[in-house]
Design a binder for these strands. Sequence first.
DNA 1: GAATGTG
DNA 2: CACATTCAACGCGAG
DNA 3: CTCGCG
Length: 854
Amino acid sequence: MDGQAKLDAYRKKRDPGQTPEPFGGPSSSPGATREGAYVVHLHDARRRHYDLRLEVGGALESFSVPKGPTLNPGERRLAVRTEPHPLEYLHFEDVIPEGNYGAGPMIVWDSGSVRYLDEPAEEQLRKGKLEFELSGHKLHGRFLLVRLKDSEKDWLLFKKHDAFAAPGGDIVQEKPRSVLSGLDIGELGHASDIASELEARAAALDAPVGSIEPTMIPMRASPAPKGLLGSNYIFELKLDGVRCIARKNGADVLLQSRNLRDVSRVYPEVARAVHKLPAARLVLDGEIIALDQAGQPSFQRLAQRIHLAKGADIRRAETRIPVLFVVFDLLAIGDRDLRRLPLHARKELLQSLVRAPGEIRTLDMIEGDPTLLFDFCRERRMEGLVAKRSDAPYRPGPSRSYDWIKLKCERDDDFVVVGYTLGEGGRARLGALDVAAYEAGELRYRGKVGSGLDASSIEALLARLTPLRTDKPTARGPYNAAPRGRVHVRPELVVSVRFSGYTDDGNLRFPVFRGIRDDVAPEECVASPHADREEAEIERLAAESTHTGGAADEPTRVPVANPDKVLFPADGITKQDIAEYYAAVAPVLLPHLGDRPVMLVRYPDGITGKFFYQWNVPAGLPAWVPTLRVRLPGREDLLEVFHIRDEATLLYVANLGTIPIHVIASRVPHLEEADFFNIDLDVSGGTFANVITLARSLEDLLKQIGLTGFPKTSGQSGLHVFVPLGPAISYETARALADLLGHMLVRRHPDIATMERSKQRRGPRVYVDTGQTGASRTIVAPYALRAVPGARVSTPLTWDEVDDTLDPRAFDIRTVPRRVARIFDPMAALLTETPSVLAAIERLEKLALGRHVA
DNA sequence: GAATGTG
DNA sequence: CACATTCAACGCGAG
DNA sequence: CTCGCG
């Protein structure tokens, strides 16, 4: 039977002048079909049913399945074999008008590719037993069709036992919508209602009437600025695909690349899906991606389609390398131009337009804390994130603002220098370093590091490397090209390199020189694309926890074991009291903890018993407890610390017998940058009245140089003053600033203040301690409970409160919750202020100089 | 305080 | 089964 | 070198 004859039955039933259904010509590829495309239609004809259509020999073998497919291997579904349909039917979704055969709406409920197992499809169909494997939007895995005895047309459809089998649930009920248009079958005939509702919403938001020229350049993201983002950003994964602006105007669809090239014919399935969206006119912005076996976007896979030009090649590629259009912005709908609307408004309209994931889907975004997404991204070795201001308009063209920001997943690691290449001009003597790392006991070349080298580091490196010169390569290659020459050295010098990942051949991607590491032995450099074992292990754990855990499993109530255990014997305060305290201050405490690695101080037997500090989370942590995997600056080991960003996690650590919680002055992912420094006014041999005097004087000093101090009681007998810094401030700078301020304070009050470390030499003076500022140095968090009799709290104050009536003993486990309810958090602005530190340093230098001269 | 390891 | 072990850290000046 | 100190 050739293709033509196969479709006779189909043609006989239909009138090409009356039905929108396709009448494709014969497509003959006789013989042995091993794979192809498939579609499952949901058809609301006289009876609602599903049509499973499998590509076999240039046509679609069709089975009508009244109850639809199931993922439950225990169930069987009747499948009635019907007349073969033309291949074009793969993309058919429309309402078949009254009076025609099969009148009623029909949606593409699922589509994808099919692979026939064991034997070609024709052979299996003849024998009455067809085994196949589907890979689509909704259906996956192995299925089996078996012909009933004594019947030609009656078959049974089974799901085979495999990883995709799902005994519970009902996929046709859970995912009723079209994978083409996102509509459900009832909506198909009323798409224009959806469109007009969306237009009305756009009009209500004051989106102007206007059209978008096809010459509009897509909005670009800027490279990340150093330091912190504001709080009003949303985060999206940066997908490894090609940018696409899609326009629909009636029946016309135009897909444009980043450079406005017309790619409509390169991705016909995307064009078809855009055509089916429920709006006559629209403009979408998104990314076209191809997924690899593991379901991750793979640019390498997509690359096989980008350059296809011939129609036949593209048709074949459609099933072999399917692509998705992941949309992240809606720029126009109907006659409304949405670009001036804030992003969140455009996103809301987009969600209503793209109603279900299929060939077109919307890009997931998260609001608030991007840490988990960043971790996910790192684990999957994905490019990074894009942060977008949720209140920003769409600004076409090259980035002019930080409304969209690229955040790369970057890594720092140490590598052994095995040589260097010669460059040009100022780089004639050293162009780039050749670096390597140990793998399986031998040095493997990992690429050239040229960025980040300035004149002084080049001098320093040359001084160190020249004595190590040797005439043979010391690492296993292949080495990158060195057109101007190369010098080999013995593998003795270690450098720190920041990079964003590995290329396919195992070299560093975007490496930047960070400095010489004298504290690391060459043998310790074991960074590799396959990651070191510890990291791999932790990532495995993380993968498990994201798999099994998540917000859904988070307990609404965290049980407190031994609630009546007394942890403050003098005050009779129990573990339950502590948990209740932390729950009460959670609204003000959590913002100070979020994104910061924390260190717990645990007193399992109360404040008079043994205690210990704890960074790493204990083994066997429940999956719902979020953690951060961090590499603190100056340390090569990976920590997995608690990520206390919700009340449940806070209560979990309270239950462990945690009394104070310490934080560091950095937030992920910039652990090498301080976002505040701390000056500790420790009573020592002095008086609290003098602490007050010094604090006021410090406030005055800070004000003069344009900085703001945030005072808090230490919870013991002193005051801490936290000073927020702008973005990208190194700990060295922060420490220098703190020290300078400390010295000036002492100079102003030599009789009552000292920075003397030795207790004896301090005498009756207040100790101004600036030594608490430093990478991976911890500080008692605001609102942390201290392990002292009276259960005092390190309590943020307003400057008004810092006067001679201040009694730090008044802030304890009982009083602080009431205070928080009344005045909330005087220190909240610590997290948002970003003063100009450069300007502050300049003013400070002038101030210091003036005093010196006087 | 809780998990893991050891006698 | 009972019991032990583990749970942080770094620089600096004095002795 | 170890100790105390924060």
